[in-house]
Simulated scan of single mutants.
Amino acid sequence: MTDLVRIAPGALTIGRPLPWTVYDTDGNVLLRQGYVIQTNSQLEQLFERGRFKPRKIERPQEEVFEDNRERNPFADYPDLLQALETTLNAITEGDPSAQKRLLGLARMVERTCTESPEATLALVHLYSIGPVIYEQILFYAILCQFVGRQFGLEEKRISVLTAAALTANLALVPIADKLNASNTILNEEQRGVIRRHPHRSIQALRDAGIDNKLLLTIIAQHHEQADGSGYPKGLSGTEIRPEAEILALAERYVAMITKRAYRNRMNIAQARKLIANLADGKFRPAIPKALLQVLGEYPPGVLVRLENNEVGVVTKRPVRARGPFVKAIFGPRGNRYTGTFERDTSLLEFNIRALEEPEIMPSMDFSLVWGFRS
């Protein structure tokens, strides 16, 4: 297969699901998307022998591009990350295409969320153990899409909010991964960089010819807090745009469920409890409530143990009186199923008993688990 390319060092990490299927030089499948690399020797072999097939990405255009492909967020995930990196680089470099790229990328995220909502929300939880900065930014945009709609924002404001989520941390991109990997207390210089990043991100957007007033306001205010304790201006109450609060909450939630060098990640129950507490002064109450409604008690992508002792992954949030729905991947005795079996957790024998909190996510072919065609 001539369209296969070598895997770059650093693209794969032990303990994280593969973002794409890996082939050998003859085009034979070595490991499927969703497989979790377990050892250093596996990793070295993949760098030596492995190849992957990059998908051609249409350059985002200002006019609507009619793409009738079925949305598969798991197949689209590497493309979205690549498009995000390209877009942020274009903004930083003042490329004339920056605004078109940003608008196109925001539409890509919107389409993925609206056409495959359960699988898209699952991305945030399946890849949240140790995401790089581009993944975190993509998660912010995904959550803003869902929470913005639940909160009742009109479509135009959701589109601008999505663009803000994709660019608000532009100034932190060069240092974010290093900060997350550090277990030392931030020094004054690092704290200064963090506090100045909204202004620097705004300046980069303006220099690239992107001057949407609402977009820049959301970025400027996304670290303000309703009780006046935020920065840079110490705004409070209704002085802060709801879009800015939605973005701030998306960032907080991703931080909660993400493992850092200096602390462990929270499970979904712990995160939900903390989000509920944020309604008391830090945010207008309707925004944490909207996020909790979006997530449900068990959002797609989390692992759970059922009453019959099976372990599975949540694939769909509750529908009316049924669900959430789970695809069982391990049997009651811990044996790995060759396929998956859908369980309606509203049935007594399949009630959810507990959350499972693996340090390494079990290998799964995500596309097949969610029922997408390979």
Rank of each mutant, 00 (worst) to 15 (best):
Tyr127Val: 06
Glu189Met: 04
Glu154Asn: 04
Ala171Glu: 13
Val193Thr: 10
Ile158Phe: 04
Val160Met: 06
Ala204Pro: 01
Ala204Glu: 09
Val147Gly: 02
Leu179Arg: 06
Gly148Pro: 05
Ala171Leu: 03
Lys178Arg: 15
Ala176Cys: 03
Glu189Ser: 12
Glu189Asp: 09
Glu189Val: 09
Ala168Leu: 01
Ser159His: 14
Lys156Cys: 02
Leu166Arg: 03
His197Tyr: 03
Arg195Phe: 10
Leu170Phe: 07
Glu188Tyr: 12
Thr167Ile: 11
Gln136Met: 06
Leu186Cys: 10
Glu189Cys: 01
Asn180Arg: 15
Val160Asn: 00
Ile194Lys: 03
Arg149Gly: 09
Ile202Asn: 10
Gly192Asn: 13
Leu172Phe: 00
Ala168Phe: 09
Ala163Met: 12
Cys144Thr: 09
Gly152His: 00
Ser201Gln: 08
Ala181Gln: 07
Ala171His: 11
Gly130Lys: 12
Arg191Met: 14
Leu153Ala: 03
Asn183Phe: 09
Leu205Ala: 11
Ile185Pro: 02
Val132Ile: 13
Asn183His: 03
Leu170Gly: 00
Ala163Pro: 01
Ala163Asn: 02
Ile129Glu: 15
Ile137Val: 14
Leu153His: 02
Phe146Arg: 02
Asp177Gln: 07
Thr184Ser: 12
Lys156Ala: 15
Val160Arg: 02
Thr184Glu: 15
Tyr140Cys: 00
Glu154Ala: 07
Pro198Lys: 04
Val193Tyr: 10
Leu143Asp: 05
Arg195Glu: 08
Ala181Ile: 07
Thr167Leu: 01
Gln150Leu: 03
Ile194Ser: 04
Phe151Met: 05
Val132Ser: 14
Arg149Gln: 14
Asn169His: 15
Arg149Asp: 07
Gly130Met: 04
Ala163Gly: 10
Gln203Met: 11
Arg149His: 12
Val124Phe: 06
Pro174Ala: 13
Lys178Pro: 04
Asp177Thr: 01
Asn180Met: 14
Lys156His: 15
Ile133Met: 04
Cys144Tyr: 10
